[in-house]
Design a protein around this nucleic acid. Structure first.
Lengths: 344, 344
DNA sequence: ATCGACTGCTTACACGCGTCACTTACGCGC
DNA sequence: GCGCGTAAGTGACGCGTGTAAGCAGTCGAT
């Protein structure tokens, strides 16, 4: 029989999982008392001596409550479901998910990450299985899903304001791009969007940010084109921009920016002299581009911490409003040659 | 009270979740019968008439068994835990996870994806909460975790052979790179590794593949260097290779390959004339590189399907051996200029 | 006519936990 | 000595499910 020393140096059987009854026996109290102590029920008075004894017994046995039994008895689970779209968002998804899982666990909430997308399972079905107390949409949930979940008494939450905007920095990222370009003398800008459908919600936010920032500075509305990453039609779009007097491009992300860079080279134009380019994400290989690509770095770690806090507040308070998140605190421009110099 | 038409066109109350007792009442049978029918228990004879009645009632009510109660009663959950390292593997992780979740669900298994890494929760802790029937490590699990789980009676599984090798194509990818380069006349090769620690298990497999493939062809052992993605020291490593007679580089992935490309340019060398380069992943922007980068494309969809099948077999049979996976069926070379022409 | 053997179903218990209602012990005022 | 309030703890029930054991009914062999 396998045994191990617990934190209190007592040998304990690990082969069978201890229940609250085991804890009760060891502490010489009833099972009810154990439950009251471990859940910190304030309506029930417990003497200090008993409390200590219970906590100690639980520790010695390495007791962990059975989640299934808890859910069943309490009539509600301690599970929260985090719904993430199956689109490619770099390490962001994983960074947030893993932290969120860990920190939710500290508060007794088991967080389950659910990937929503083609080939995946419907959120509603998954929710019917797991019966989470709350479902959190990383970018909001569509109307139908929302209705179905609400009918089944499941709380819904998403990050404010408007759900979709915030998770990736929202339109603020677009503002920062414009700030950087304007500081280098550019006045006629363009926004290079992605063609990827799954990223629409993010892309729209960034585009809005660029447009708003231009308007706020009295600049002309930025030109707009979508770029497929294979570079198809990219050359002609870039040439058209240059001829129309555009001098700088804010790209949806670094991949799009790199596509634009290649189109500029192929068109015989020069970057940054004819057309400056700034991306978002600060991919590790940006320094290897021709020319090296200016970008906006997002400190994923710090970002994950902030969003995790916000989401935990939602879980704790059953969907209380969450304050604004300071995007600038984890976002910074990484200047390289693709936007170098003051040209205009 | 909210109601809805079920597939049988009967109005059904959705505000309260139906239990098997509700199904039993509606079908005029006992609860036990419902359980036997819905679980297809073969030791219990059920007349066709009753079976139909039960299935119908369940459908009309939209009955879904309560997972928590099932776990509790059965003494074991229908949960499988899929442990994925929190390293950057592109869309691969999400593609497999979402498909796996969906297909496991069809077989009554609820799959939970757990991200393992710094800042995340320990696998053992998470497992103690969820009590999964099986824990599957995408790259195997370390010894300590394995022991702890086994002590707690939790089945462990990982993809064979050796866990780490297979999930991303294993050393076969390295073979394919070498095949491609040799077909273009190269005989003196080098392997460009990543410095990223989290990718060690993958990187080692690929390196092994390149080495083995060279040996099998009677070529000299390939040169080896690690490249940081910021390009530090890259130029001198590349120059050293060229001077040593190396004519082609197989890179761990496209990011490393791109770093090497930049170093080649900066060193005044030409690609592919002086040094050919091939990566892995076929990133969308490869066509925008200077020169466009040859790579190995992995059909993530198809790959996900194959691995999903293998993992489901593990779940179904409680860790039965899984046959080899045909990596070539979802892997193919995408030739571009960085390895163009037969030079030597 | 009686006795299994079999089919088809039901009754009853267990799983681990939360929690309401109830008990016991004890101090205090009269 | 008695009633009463409060502190501290216990007993028992129910959550929704799986499943062993039991129980009517039918049918063929004796």
């Amino acid at each position: 029989m396998s045994t191990v020393k617990s934190s209190s140096e007592r040998e304990v059987d690990l082969a069978t999982v201890p229940t609250s009854a085991d804890v009760a026996r060891r502490a010489n109290v009833s099972r009810a008392t154990v439950s009251y102590v471990l859940n910190g029920v304030s309506s029930q008075k417990i003497s200090d001596k008993t409390r200590k004894a219970v906590l100690r017994a639980a520790d010695e046995l390495g007791y962990r409550p059975n989640l299934a039994a808890q859910s069943l008895a309490a009539g509600a689970s301690r599970i929260a479901m985090f719904v993430v779209p199956s689109v490619h968002l770099g390490e962001l998804t994983i960074a947030i998910s893993s932290r969120l899982t860990a920190r939710a666990a500290e508060r007794g909430v088991t967080l389950i990450v659910h990937f929503e997308g083609p080939g995946s399972r419907s959120v509603v079905e998954a929710a019917m299985d797991l019966r989470p107390r709350v479902v959190i949409g990383a970018f909001g949930l569509d109307g139908e899903t929302t209705r179905a979940l609400q009918q089944r008494q499941i709380t819904i939450a998403s990050l404010p304001p408007g759900g979709g905007q915030t998770l990736a920095g929202g339109d603020r990222t677009g503002w920062i791009q414009v700030e950087h370009l304007v500081a280098r003398g550019h006045t006629r800008l363009a926004f290079a969007d992605t063609t990827e459908a799954g990223l629409k919600m993010l892309a729209r936010g960034r585009h809005d940010g660029v447009v708003d920032a231009c308007r706020a500075r009295g600049l002309a509305t930025p030109a707009y084109e979508q770029f497929a990453l294979d570079g198809r039609d990219a050359d002609q779009k870039v040439r058209a921009w240059a001829e129309a007097g555009v001098t700088a491009v804010a790209a949806y992300n670094d991949e799009v920016a790199i596509t634009v860079l290649a189109a500029i080279r192929r068109s015989g134009l020069r970057c940054p002299q004819d057309l400056a380019v700034i991306g978002v994400d600060d991919m590790a290989i940006n320094g290897s581009m021709e020319p090296p690509l200016t970008s906006i770095a997002i400190d994923v770690d710090r970002m994950a911490v902030l969003y995790t806090d916000a989401l935990l507040k939602i879980i704790d308070d059953d969907n209380s409003p969450v304050g604004e998140i300071d995007i600038d605190s984890f976002t910074r421009v990484v200047p390289r040659e693709s936007t170098a110099g003051v040209m205009y």
